[in-house]
Amino acid sequence: MFAFHSDAHSLALPPGHRFPQSKYRLLREHFEREPGLLRMQPAPAASEGELALAHTPDYVDAVLLGRLSAAQQREIGFPWSPSMAERSRRSVGASIAAARAALEEGVAANMAGGTHHAYADKGSGYCVFNDVAVAARLMQAEWGRRHRSLLRVLVIDLDVHQGNGTAAIFRDDDTVFTFSMHGARNFPFRKEPSDLDVDLPDGCGDADYLAALDRAMDEVWRRCEPGLAFYLAGADPHEGDRLGRLKLTYDGLAERDRRVLTALRERRIPVALSMAGGYGHDLATTVAVQVNTLTLAAQSWQAFNARGND
């Protein structure tokens, strides 16, 4: 399975900053020690034109040229630097590359991404550009040119935080179905309406979470027939997450991933994964959750292609 990484470009963060940027390097290094499961490649940088498919030109320029105001940088949560801008472009490029690979092979992944708090005209909550929104619109354009038909897209957002930026970008677009299941009392405190939102109470554990997921996915299939899915497989619903407020176990998150990937594979819907959030008190636990997500994705890729070759 193809997996694209962008951790070579670091953020100039002050000591004690809550954003765990080292997890992306640790995730890549884990699979480098166990070669054969993933075909890892450095992510290409998204072009200005690609970014403008989901973002205003003024905002793209502000990020790429270092013109973000102090207030804009505070809302994003990162100080601007050339490396921050390049990292953001490559995080989007990773989702673009993963989506193209998924359309060819069934399953692929961005080893970062899931920056769902970025709006068309601003960043927020550690999200600069919205990688899934850009990739979705680009895949629709490329598909339309190649096949002369419409590519409908499904966004399955299981980060613990609601995908407000993604919901806002696609608010009036009936070609993209947005589904977010998240903590009701968690950031962002002003939610944007997705096509389907499921709000979960603090302390929600495995059984209640998985039951809610099953009900929601049944609703998704009643309302949506996508040709491509994006799955934001956040690790932050884990019980050990500093920002999560939910109580899923490692096994519960594995079952979440298994159910989503199985449902997509059985319907022959290609999927591009993003790792999205994860802020564990113990960073090794967050990495372990995301290692398992990518391992299950690679197994789904194998099954997807084995079935295709029957």
Rank of each mutant, 00 (worst) to 15 (best):
N110E: 10
Q290A: 05
Q21T: 09
F19E: 09
A12N: 14
H117P: 13
D61S: 14
C224K: 06
Q41H: 05
S10E: 13
G36E: 12
L154W: 08
S83F: 07
V153H: 03
E48A: 13
A3P: 01
G123S: 11
L273Q: 03
H238K: 00
P15S: 05
V291F: 08
A54M: 03
T175F: 03
M1K: 03
M275L: 14
D241M: 07
Q140V: 06
D159M: 06
R222K: 14
A70P: 00
A109R: 01
G77S: 08
R100Y: 09
T115K: 12
M1W: 00
M1S: 10
A141F: 09
N305R: 15
K191S: 05
T285M: 12
E105P: 00
G36C: 09
R265S: 12
R39A: 14
E105V: 04
V63G: 07
P14F: 02
E192W: 07
S149M: 05
A288C: 10
G183A: 08
G234L: 05
A101G: 07
L228M: 11
L138R: 11
F189P: 01
E192H: 11
R268Q: 15
R74Y: 05
G252Y: 09
P35I: 11
T115V: 10
G183K: 01
I76L: 11
G280L: 05
D121I: 09
D195L: 08
H5E: 11
G205N: 06
C204H: 01
R265F: 00
Y279E: 12
V60Q: 11
E192V: 15
E192M: 15
R185W: 03
I156K: 03
Q73E: 15
H116E: 11
A184H: 14
A276I: 05
G125Q: 08
I269H: 10
S91R: 08
L228V: 06
N292T: 12
N110Y: 09
E192P: 01
S81T: 15
D206Y: 13
E34V: 04
Y126I: 08
V128D: 02
L264E: 06
D58N: 00
G114E: 10
L26E: 13
G66M: 07
V220Y: 04
G227I: 07
A85D: 07
A297R: 08
F187A: 04
P57T: 03
E75Q: 15
F2W: 00
G234M: 02
E239T: 00
A133L: 02
A135C: 09
A211V: 14
S10L: 13
D214P: 07
R223I: 07
S124Q: 13
A62G: 01
P14N: 04
W221Y: 13
A101S: 14
V63K: 08
G278K: 02
G113V: 05
Y126T: 02
M40D: 04
Q290I: 01
A46W: 02
R146E: 15
L154H: 02
Q21G: 01
G277H: 03
H161V: 11
L296A: 07
R39G: 09
T249P: 06
M181V: 02
H30R: 11
G277W: 06
